[in-house]
């Protein structure tokens, strides 16, 4: 499916949130290292799954790509254009191509606006069409996400979580983007609805040739939809590989631990397989462990792990990992 041309490239992307203190004037006394020096590419037409525990910096990565958080350092190239250097006007134009779908179907729709005005908002912001044309386009979009166009004058609170998420998808599609960050779009939904939304996203991808960064906190959620999967821990990407390589041959101890938490449907395999239980809590991103950030919980850590950060390298073909002990 992917033709290996990078649509998006992150180079050493870093986002630190300052921690400030002070009565009159605020001084910076520290930083939450939400995203620290990550680099990867997303190919045109593919879906990259981004997985990690809650609070590891997935949403921050997504928002930094969209320049909703100004990156502390590093670059974001979209189609060869560096978004971190783009002027406001340039960025505004770029936003037609890059969109986002959010996790919380309640917080992502303004409760005071009708569905029609929510979906028409992107058109209004970019001055596209007359009021009547927009209305038509909104109806088209509603049909596209399998909602009744008849709902156009309703308010978000009258819809179910799954329906709201569809409204969010319609809004993201209004400007006909090429790339969409899906920030845990199904995590808040009932299991029965999750599949519907994933199927919708896949259909839309086929129809419009979309590229997705699909975020989830659990490896099982992205298996179906992803072409490649990246695993994130405490602000760092620790492993990135084609989907099957990640699920069948995970190299990083953290990925192995995450996978062992996913139950296997085959009872024989399930009984035999070795489970890796992670001990302890995720350390605070404002004071991450030295060396490899995972060493406080890693079952196979050695001395070097707490002294030097592991290098991000291609251990096997197309299979990137950051761990001292991977050969």
């Amino acid at each position: 499916m992917s033709d290996k041309k990078p649509l998006l490239r992150l180079e050493n992307l870093t986002k630190h949130f300052p921690i400030t203190k002070g009565v009159i004037v605020q001084k910076q006394v520290g930083a939450v290292q939400a995203v620290d020096n990550i680099s990867f590419e997303i190919y045109r037409g593919e879906t990259l799954g981004l997985v990690g525990e809650s609070g590891c910096g997935k949403s921050t990565t997504g928002r930094a790509i969209l320049q909703l958080h100004e990156p502390t350092s590093g670059k974001v190239f979209y189609d060869g254009v560096d978004l971190t250097e783009a002027s406001n006007a340039e960025m505004r134009e770029m936003r037609r191509n890059i969109q986002i779908i959010f996790q919380d179907p309640y917080a992502s729709l303004n409760p005071r606006m009708t569905v029609g005005s929510i979906i028409a908002e992107p058109l209004e912001i970019h001055n596209i069409g007359t009021a009547a044309e927009r209305q038509e386009r909104v109806k088209e979009l509603l049909e596209l996400v399998s909602l009744n166009p008849f709902f156009i004058n309703r308010y978000p609170h009258e819809f179910s979580g799954g329906q709201r998420q569809r409204i969010g998808v319609a809004r993201a599609l209004a400007l006909q983007p090429d790339f969409i960050v899906c920030d845990e779009p199904i995590s808040a939904l009932d299991v029965s609805i999750q599949a519907q939304v994933v199927n919708l996203l896949e259909e839309l991808q086929d129809e419009f040739g979309l590229t997705y960064l699909f975020i989830a906190h659990d490896l099982s959620m992205v298996r179906h939809i992803s072409d490649r999967v990246a695993v994130m821990y405490l602000g760092k990407i620790v492993e990135l590989a084609p989907r099957d390589a990640v699920y069948e041959n995970p190299l990083h101890p953290y990925t192995q631990a995450l996978l062992s938490a996913v139950p296997v449907p085959d009872p024989v395999v399930e009984r035999k397989r070795k489970r890796v239980i992670l001990e302890g809590d995720v350390p605070s991103p404002s004071n991450p462990p030295s060396g490899c950030r995972f060493h406080t919980r890693c079952p196979i850590a050695e001395d070097i792990c707490s002294q030097e950060p592991p290098i991000w390298r291609e251990a096997e073909e197309e299979h990137w990992v950051a761990c001292h002990l991977v050969k």
Binding site: M91, R96, Q103, E121, P122
Partner: peptide, 13 residues
């Protein structure tokens, strides 16, 4: 901080 505001920004508002 609500996501609908972020959504508007992402749309170029």
């Amino acid at each position: 901080e609500k996501e609908f505001v972020e959504a508007a920004r992402a749309l170029g508002a």
